[in-house]
């Protein structure tokens, strides 16, 4: 599926967030000079094509008290990474799980997952349980807790134009410790 100019305008209009009104797609349609139905059909097609995963919320983990944000990285033989990745992704406390390239010699790890918890000790205990449960002791792994968070915003996918100019804003410089 290739994005049309109209798709790009539609994406630009919604990438900063949906209007919080009873009929949000009608509000977007009015802004773009389209009909509500056209917007809904097009968004459903973008979702069907997998370009939009879902309409949802981006939660600020720290605002919810999830202050221990651990990136756990593993060095898993390539032949086993799909299996181990699926196991880890199935754990309820793991919120993201990706295979990424190693950058040898400085970086040996090829499987990345995120565990969010209210404090570091509980995150480490959960990790120990997961390692024991799945017999992962033999795979080198390490935990990178986050320190300061400098910038947190949703990614923007369509370049700034007249429709999106106000959405970028200036980068936030929060310096919360966690």
């Amino acid at each position: 599926m290739v994005l049309s100019e109209q798709d790009r305008e539609l994406i630009a209009a919604i990438q900063g967030g949906l209007p919080l009104v009873a009929r949000p797609y009608a509000a977007i349609a009015a802004r773009l000079g389209l009909h509500e139905d056209e917007v809904i059909v097009r968004l459903a097609a973008l979702q069907q094509a997998g370009m939009i995963k879902r309409m949802g919320v981006v939660v600020k983990h720290r605002a919810l008290g999830y202050n221990a944000n651990a990136m756990v990285v593993w060095d898993i033989p390539d032949a086993e990474v799909a299996h181990i990745g699926a196991l880890l992704a199935g754990e309820t406390c793991i919120t993201l799980c990706y295979q990424r390239p190693r950058r040898l010699p400085e970086w040996r790890y090829n499987l990345f997952c995120m565990i969010h918890g209210r404090e570091r000790d509980s995150v480490l205990r959960r990790l120990e349980q997961i390692v024991a449960l799945h017999g992962l002791e033999k795979f080198p792994h390490t935990v990178l807790f986050s320190g300061r968070s400098f910038k947190q915003r949703g990614a923007h996918y369509v370049e700034t134009g007249k429709l999106t100019g106000s959405l970028h804003g200036s980068p936030s410089r929060k310096k919360a410790h966690g």
Binding site: I11, I14, G17, V59
Partner: peptide, 12 residues
């Protein structure tokens, strides 16, 4: 700021 955004989650 409990939610940073409400809307589409794109697959870049």
């Amino acid at each position: 700021r409990v939610l940073s955004r409400f809307g589409p989650m794109f697959n870049a």
